[in-house]
Structures are given as C-alpha cells and as structure tokens.
Design a protein around this nucleic acid. Sequence first.
DNA 1: AATTAGGACAAGTTTTTTATTGATGTGAAT
DNA 2: ATTCACATCAATAAAAAACTTGTCCTAATT
Lengths: 231, 231
Amino acid sequence: MKSILETDNEFICDIQAPCFQMLSPEEAELVRASKTQVLFRKGDNLTKQGAFASYVLFIITGLAKQYVEGDSSKNFNLRIVKPGEFVGLSAVFTKNTFNYSSVALTDCQVFLVEKDAIANVVKQNGMFGFNIIKRYCEQNANLFDTLRMVLYKQMNGRMADTLLYIDGLKSENVDIFQLLSRKDIADFAGVSTESAVKLLKSFEKDGLIELNEKDILVVNHNALQEISKRG
Amino acid sequence: MKSILETDNEFICDIQAPCFQMLSPEEAELVRASKTQVLFRKGDNLTKQGAFASYVLFIITGLAKQYVEGDSSKNFNLRIVKPGEFVGLSAVFTKNTFNYSSVALTDCQVFLVEKDAIANVVKQNGMFGFNIIKRYCEQNANLFDTLRMVLYKQMNGRMADTLLYIDGLKSENVDIFQLLSRKDIADFAGVSTESAVKLLKSFEKDGLIELNEKDILVVNHNALQEISKRG
DNA sequence: AATTAGGACAAGTTTTTTATTGATGTGAAT
DNA sequence: ATTCACATCAATAAAAAACTTGTCCTAATT
C-alpha cells in the first residue's frame, strides 16, 4: 500500500527541467539519494520565514506564493513560484534560515533536496552550478525591481506593475487570478486591501482592465506600462 | 527596528520549562547558539509530513494540532500540542523527515533547535537526555493508545475518547473547543464529519454532553468513560 | 494654507466555508 | 438474508471570510 503522499522513486529521472538534465548519472544519483518528494496541499506552507532551512524546494507541479511577513498580518508578496522553479536557494550557500514564507496556492508536488547534496553537485558540475547561480541571480534582480517599486512608485504605478506581472503568468496559467484574493493582489502592490479594490475599479473605469468576478483582463497593456513607468 | 517576528535572544534563558532549567550554562549556550525563534500564525504549518526535519520545535506559547495526512483530505488528528511540549523529537535520533504534519490553532511562539545541538547536549547531560527520552516515550505511548482506539473501538467509543481527551485540556485552555471545527473533532475520532455531528447530537440527547455553539461541556464524565471502555 | 496620497474605520454585501439533516449504499458480521 | 456500523451524497442552514464603498484622518507636498 502506498500513500498518495509518498514518492515514486523514478520521478526525478523523469524530470524534464533542464537543470536536472545536465547531471551525470552519478550526480543524479547523489541528488536522488538526498531527496524526498512531498505533496503540499493548497494552503500549506512550503517555507516559513525564520525557520531553519536545511534543504531546497523544487516545484514539480502547482503554484505557490512567496512573501515576507511583517507585523500582524502585514505581508508583502514577492512572487508566484511556478513549476520548474526553486524556493530557498539561498539556503544552499549562506543563509541557515528561510528569509521568507511561502504557501501553496494549489496542491503542489514538490521535491526537497538537502542542501549539502546540491552544494556538492554544484562543486562537481560547473554547468549545473552556473544554472543554479543564474536562477538565483534572476530572483535577486527581481527583488531589486520590487524594492524600487515600493521605494519610488506610488499606488497607481505599483498596482500597474502588479497587474502586468500577474498578467504575464496568464499564458502558462489562465486561471491565475482565480487563485488570488483582493488581499493577495494588495499585498503584491503593497497597498491596503481597500485601496486595491478602489484602484482596480478606477482602472476598470478608465478602460485599462476588465473585472469579471475574480478574473482580471488587461485590456490596455500600453497604458498600464505607461502608468507603471510614471510611477 | 526589530520585527515582531524576530527573536529576543534572552528568551531562552527565561524559559520556565523544567527541561531547559537543568542545563549547565555552557550547555544552554550550545542550545542558544543553534536556535531560532519563530512566530507561527494561526493556520501556519509547523511541520509538514515528509519534509526534511533538521530541527526540533519547542512550543513556548499557543496551541497546535498534530496530524497524519492520508489520501486527499483524509487526515487523522493525533494530538493537541501545548506550550512546553516538543514537536519532531524523532528527528533528533533517527528519522530524517517528519512523519506527521502540524498546524497552529492559535498564533504560536516556537523555538527551533537544530537537532545536532540537542543530540550533543543529550550526550553530555544525562538528566536532560532522560527527560527528552521520557517525553518521547510518553508521546509514543499515546500513539499506541490511539492505535488501539482506531483498531478496536467503534464510533461511540472513539468519540467518547476524543471528547474526554479534549475536555482534559480545558483546565489549561478553556476555549479549546472554539478552536476546533466539527471536522477537526471528526478527524480526532476517525469518523466522517457528518457522523461526528450526529454522534454529538446523540450524546447530547442522552445527557452526556451539552452543546453551546462550538463549545462542548462534558456533563456525565463517568458515562463517557463507560462508553469509551465498552468500545 | 491647501492639496494629495493613501491608510484606518465602519457598515453593508457577497461569497465561501462549515454545520446539519436525511436518504441511500456497502461491506462485514450474524 | 438480514442487521449493523458506518461512509457517502445531496440539500439546506448558519456562520465566517472576503469584498466593496463611503467617510474620515494624517503626514507629506505644493
């Protein structure tokens, strides 16, 4: 009898993600030996800000949101994590604790690999290491963009950024907006929930977007980008 | 500026839990050096079944529920974790992954200690080790009781057990029932939610308990124990 | 001093979740 | 074959979250 939560050992070999394809058989074995697969259900925490991070998470299927926690329910959303992406890469190299939380927006099949295994493989396999570092830098760059956004832009610009970002995920995930509450969107834009509601209404009135229940359709892409630029 | 989520380093010294009192200053320092404190918000996962377990959790304040996950939403609740108790002790000695999930029923201030630190202190300090083992054995014994319950008892007996167990927590935590849904209670008794509702009604009709909204008052303690014994 | 940006609060509405009840089905035990 | 001990399904009611809107307040900008 095998629980639905348990791992099929063959799974890692089947992974289509480019970064695992470039491993030699021995390296793949190294990873395989220190990995486990977990089904995170919708709403489960994948990581908790401040908790010890002894492993890296690799999303196989499902979507999660990554956020930083502030004081009492003041969260700020950093990004949506998609299949093929890592969470907690910083754990491998330096940080011993997660510096953000993340939560499953849908059920997520996730791969956990102990950080030592990843570190060893990185040391052995330059191409793999390069890829990991590249991913890490990308996330970092996005973090700078985010920082700039909250530092220099005001509500309209931030909401425009948020909408453009989420809309960009729609190609791969049509129902992304169904998974997000107004509070989620507000936490991406760094505004209060009420302000988010009002901003969305006003964007709709101005013909920039269309609101259908929870779904949001970006109608005037260029104008939104203009607002984003103006700040 | 210090986030509410961050640790006050002095906290561990102030801990009143007997098991930390018996450490020598150097041992306390060892623990302190590999610990972190995290605020888990109501609904956050403290542990996730199947994820790597590199640390032990010690509850300072708040309540959590510990449960095993089965197939799609078939969970079974093991226990309520109270302040002064550990979660994940098995990680220290053998198991590399958590074999259960747990979730905060209220906001929880939790202490995480890396397992190596605990292991080292246990090796040095016999009394501390004895205490840890004792706690671990207690949890284990409860597990056997639980196993017996689901193996040999049927609905009425299981619900009686569940009510007696939760009622036993009321002395320390009057509003414990407010924190539990009917599904939670059902998952403790290992019955369907609908059966739980019906059982509670029937217990009320028989004058064993009183239902006031979410709160449950055990009126006839002895009769419940009798039902528990009969199975 | 006046305007602006945006949060806080309050109150109402809608949607989602939880709880409840009855009816029906099933497999094990008699 | 029948009963027992449940689970499952469906429909409804009730409670809790989430969403919406308007009003007011404050700190920064003009």
